[in-house]
Design a binder for these strands. Sequence first.
DNA 1: TTGAAACATGAACCACTATTCAACTTAGAA
DNA 2: TTCTAAGTTGAATAGTGGTTCATGTTTCAA
Lengths: 217, 217
Amino acid sequence: MENAVSRDFMATKYSDHVESKDKQPRTARGFKTKRKLLDAAALEFGEKGFHEASITGITQRAGTALGSFYTYFDSKDELFSALVKDMSARVKTHAGSAMTEWEDALEREKLALKAFMNFAREHKEIYRIIDEAEFVDPESYRSHYQETAARIAERLQEGSVTGDLRDDLEEAHAWAIMGMNVFLGLRYGIWSEDKPAEEVAAIANGILAQGIAGPKI
Amino acid sequence: MENAVSRDFMATKYSDHVESKDKQPRTARGFKTKRKLLDAAALEFGEKGFHEASITGITQRAGTALGSFYTYFDSKDELFSALVKDMSARVKTHAGSAMTEWEDALEREKLALKAFMNFAREHKEIYRIIDEAEFVDPESYRSHYQETAARIAERLQEGSVTGDLRDDLEEAHAWAIMGMNVFLGLRYGIWSEDKPAEEVAAIANGILAQGIAGPKI
DNA sequence: TTGAAACATGAACCACTATTCAACTTAGAA
DNA sequence: TTCTAAGTTGAATAGTGGTTCATGTTTCAA
């Protein structure tokens, strides 16, 4: 991001990915338009999915002309890809900022899930866009989950060091936890909100704390 | 399925869903052609995904004329939907038949995961088709996971009764377990097979058995 | 103030592919 | 064997929507 002009107008939201050269806006007006397109696209993709979404729909939502889209993006795919990378970063940021205060490693995981669930509820379109990336932009999808798992694995590692957690935890444990979180997010964040995030997080945490086995005799 | 003619020719694989009237084959030749189309479609959708897949590609793989497709299916969507429902049933059947012999509820869950992982490895296209249903045929997708979760919940219930499991398990626990399984299946079944199914299943089972907390002091 | 670079506009273009259909072939019951 | 329903065929149709581009407008540094 070498362009120093009007840096203030860069969306804090959408500035973290590498963009194709020559399509960067250079004036305040340009940044504003690009931002409108990005926001509109998130809505359009979130509501309709990649294939049902149309550039026309996006530009209409954004209140710009059809052609303006191509002033800032090379193609529909490129836009989607940019969006996925950005959403991935936002999920990461949000979860990270929710895990600042915790007593032990288990509590930290509980906070992570709760944050994820609330984020999913507030941004259902993000959930859908990342999920659809499995088919539209597989590379980004893979990166998203690999990186997420890596962050979880790191936390587990730290928990092992402090003694909060077992010391034989590995990548697969991280994937298992991530899977729990994602599916609970889908069921109780996206599909329905019939159970408080706190409660869902408590249930998942219960599994991590002691498993589901019956009391030993 | 009221048609009694040539019932022998019905694919055991693809006969479990309700089909649109008037498109059923009535002769041996017809059943054979429909079967070829279904198999070809599973491959085509599995490889390319719904939107990249084409009817032309499907009929070419099947070795039939383009028009023959519409002798048996109303549309591309209808075919996909039929496929999803069938694959869902196959996953269910496969998992069920793998859980016949077990000592306790936890072992049963381990068998379920191992069966699922092996199934995913052998039928990667099924995994992808069901996953893509989230966007192409949301109803079927929802049903698939709701029903899967319901079966898990039932097993948990039984485990509670026998005392193998805690007695406060509910739907959310089933979803958590399902999420674990699905993500482990994705990571160690579809993306890579670098870890034996047995080992992955053991890890997940370890979580269910005792959680991931460190030894109490 | 001014002129060149940015940006905006939307009609037209174009490639792609799901679906239709009318002519033709095959199966199998009577 | 015969005749009709079932099945096959692939060229033609039709609708869609991503992308281009020539033209007009706005911005802002000099």
